[in-house]
């Protein structure tokens, strides 16, 4: 284990995770809104926002799937030291972390069961940009319309159609995050 795995956690976990969780909750309750979240200094390529989300929500009870370029020794060590979360295959994870291309296909993740739709994975998607523009959104948490720069349209539309089953998404970029629960309807321009 490298010594940098030992640093970069929350300095004051009870307070910082409470503040970070409120941002995550606001994001999940109001799809399309973008929130600043900080506290974690994780190893690259893990963003501050994704690191803070993982510190806030993950522990020994939450298997994590690391996809593609995020499956590095530095990130594995950092997660092991700070969260103790076990690593798992996509089909058995509660949280998955990676870039959009690496996380696909979405059919690999648990969608929940009809009796327990909450037993589905939450995907933390690292993005190069995150803006409240692009694809139009509506649904619970949105007064009229919201917009978010989603990496694609078809996959999220298919996920919404599975409701009440389905995956939930947290998009992270630097120190900012937004979220997309399974309830959000996607209104794409005709071109997509």
């Amino acid at each position: 284990m490298h010594s940098e795995a030992l640093s970069g956690g929350f300095a004051d976990p009870p307070i910082q995770s409470a503040q970070a969780f409120r941002k995550v909750m606001e994001a999940m309750a109001r799809p399309g809104t973008i929130h600043e979240i900080s506290g974690a200094e994780p190893p690259v390529p893990l963003s501050q926002a994704a690191g803070s989300v993982l510190l806030t929500l993950c522990d020994g009870d939450t298997p994590i799937h690391l996809a593609g370029g995020h499956d590095t020794e530095a990130i594995r060590d950092w997660l092991a030291f700070h969260t103790g979360a076990p690593l798992a295959a996509a089909s058995e994870c509660m949280f998955a972390l990676g870039r959009w291309e690496a996380l696909k296909p979405l059919s690999a993740y648990p969608l929940g069961t009809p009796e327990y739709p909450d037993r589905s994975a939450t995907l933390i998607v690292e993005c190069d940009e995150l803006a409240a523009e692009g694809v139009e959104l509506s649904g619970p948490g949105i007064e009229a319309r919201a917009a978010l720069s989603l990496p694609e349209v078809a996959a999220f539309r298919a996920n919404n159609a599975l409701f009440p089953l389905g995956l939930d998404f947290i998009f992270t970029c630097g120190s900012r995050l937004a979220a997309l629960p399974r309830t959000t309807r996607i209104h794409a321009p005709e071109a997509c």
């Binding site: 929500l57 909450d118 939450t122 399974r182």
Partner: peptide, 13 residues
């Protein structure tokens, strides 16, 4: 953390 995860899934469903 356990309660927070439940709240997030509750908001999603």
């Amino acid at each position: 953390r356990m309660i927070r995860r439940a709240i997030l899934k509750g908001l999603a469903i």
